[in-house]
C-alpha cells in the first residue's frame, strides 16, 4: 500500500466524522457551503469553521506531541491568555509589532519550558505539573492586563486575526504552516521516532540512548509555543486581550481534538494531520450546534451527546461490530 493510501485508511474514521459534521451543517444552514469573496477574502460557513477552529488546531498539534509522550498539557488555555496579554500590552506600550509578537511567543516558549522542566527534570506527573500553570497562568495574564480587556489596533497584529493570504484566512494559513513545520520537524528528523519511543517505553528508550529528558522538554516547549501562537491569533481576532476568557477551557477542546483525531492517551504513535482534522471536526460540530437554533441551555448537552457518539463510532468495539455484520451479510449471501 502506498504511504498516502495507508494514511487515508488510518484516518478514515476521522475523515468520516469531519465529513458527516460538514453535511450536518449543510442541512442546518443550506448556505453553509456557499463561498463568496468579501473585501478580497473568502467568506462563508466553511471559512468560519476554519477561522474559529485554528486556535484549537494549533493547540491540538502541541497536545498531540505531548500526548504521544504519554503526557498531557493542561496549561495551554492559560498560555494563550498570557501570550495575548503580552502582545496587546506590548504594542499598546509602543513596542514595534515584531517585537511584541516575539515577546508573546517567547512567553509561550518559556511557559512550555517551565512545564518541561517540572516534568522531565523534577519528575512531576504531567497532569499535576501543567495544572500549576493552568491555574497560575491566568492570574499572570490578568496581572499583565491589570484585569481589563486590553484593546489594541496595531494593523499587523490584527492581520493575524482577520487578514487573508490569497483569500484564505490568516489563522488557517498559520495553522497549516504550523502543521507543515511540525511535520517536517518530527518526520524529516528523528524527533518523531524519539517521541513515539519515549511515549511507548521510556525505560527502553533511555537504555537505547535516547535523551528522554530532552525529548520531553522539546514537546512541552513546542506545546507552549503553539499555544502562544493560538493566543495571539485569538486576541487579534477580537482585537483585544481578554485575560479572563481567552482560551478558557480550550485545553480540554485540544485534548478532545487529539482524541477525535484517533490519538491514544497512553502515548505512542501520533498523527499531527489527524489531530488537525480532529480539531476541525470538533469546530464543525460546535458551529453546527450554535447555528441549529437550540435554546442556549441545551448547547452543552447536545455537544456532549455528539462527542460521545463520535467516540463510540471510533471505538474498536464498533469496528468489530461492523466487521461481524459484514461477515454475517456476506455469509448469508453465499
Amino acid at each position: 500500500m502506498s504511504r498516502a493510501g495507508r494514511w487515508l485508511r488510518a484516518g478514515l474514521p476521522q475523515l468520516a466524522v469531519l465529513i458527516l459534521a460538514l453535511i450536518a451543517n449543510g442541512l442546518i444552514a443550506p448556505n453553509f457551503f456557499t463561498l463568496t469573496v468579501q473585501d478580497g477574502r473568502l467568506f462563508g460557513g466553511l471559512v468560519d469553521v476554519v477561522n474559529r477552529g485554528a486556535p484549537t488546531a494549533l493547540l491540538g498539534l502541541g497536545m498531540a506531541l505531548v500526548i504521544a509522550t504519554r503526557g498531557i498539557d493542561l496549561s495551554v488555555g492559560a498560555v494563550m491568555a498570557i501570550a495575548g496579554a503580552v502582545a496587546a500590552v506590548a504594542v499598546n506600550d509602543g513596542l514595534a509589532w515584531p517585537l511584541a509578537l516575539a515577546l508573546a511567543l517567547g512567553a509561550g516558549l518559556a511557559c512550555g519550558l517551565w512545564n518541561g522542566v517540572l516534568i522531565a527534570v523534577l519528575g512531576i506527573q504531567p497532569i499535576v505539573a501543567t495544572l500549576i500553570l493552568m491555574v497560575a497562568g491566568r492570574g499572570v495574564a490578568q496581572l499583565i492586563t491589570a484585569g481589563r480587556i486590553v484593546t489594541f489596533d496595531e494593523p499587523h497584529l490584527l492581520w493575524l486575526g482577520g487578514g487573508s493570504v490569497l483569500g484564505l484566512p490568516v489563522a488557517a494559513v498559520v495553522a497549516l504552516t504550523a502543521l507543515a513545520v511540525f511535520l517536517v520537524a518530527t518526520r524529516r528528523t528523528a524527533l518523531g521516532l524519539f517521541i513515539e519511543a519515549v511515549g511507548v517505553n521510556p525505560r527502553a528508550s533511555r537504555l537505547a540512548g535516547i535523551d528522554t529528558r530532552g525529548v520531553l522538554l522539546c514537546v512541552y516547549a513546542a506545546s507552549g509555543l503553539l499555544a502562544a501562537t493560538a493566543g495571539v491569533i485569538a486576541a487579534a481576532d477580537i482585537r483585544a486581550a481578554d485575560a479572563n476568557n481567552a482560551g478558557l477551557w480550550l485545553e480540554l477542546d485540544a485534548i478532545l481534538a487529539v482524541v477525535i483525531g484517533g490519538g491514544l492517551l497512553y502515548g505512542g504513535r501520533f498523527s499531527l494531520s489527524l489531530a488537525l482534522i480532529g480539531a476541525l471536526a470538533l469546530q464543525t460540530i460546535k458551529t453546527g450546534i450554535l447555528r441549529a437554533g437550540f435554546p442556549p441551555e441545551f448547547n452543552l448537552i447536545v455537544m456532549a451527546a455528539v462527542v460521545a457518539g463520535v467516540l463510540c463510532l471510533q471505538s474498536p468495539a464498533f469496528a468489530e461490530l461492523v466487521r461481524r455484520m459484514r461477515l454475517r451479510r456476506s455469509g448469508a449471501g453465499s
Binding site: I28, A29, N31, F32, G44, G45, D48, R52, I149, A234, D237, I238, A240, D242, N244, N245, A246, T287, L290, R291, G293, P295, P296, N299
Partner: peptide, 25 residues
C-alpha cells in the same frame, strides 16, 4: 428571531454573530 449564548465574552459574541449572519442571510 434568534437567541444564543455569547457567554458575555467578545470571542463568543463574535462567533455567535457569525452564525446568525449565515443563518439569517
Amino acid at each position: 428571531v434568534r437567541t444564543q449564548s455569547g457567554e458575555f465574552t467578545r470571542a463568543k459574541g463574535k462567533e455567535v454573530m457569525e452564525g446568525f449572519i449565515k443563518a439569517e442571510n
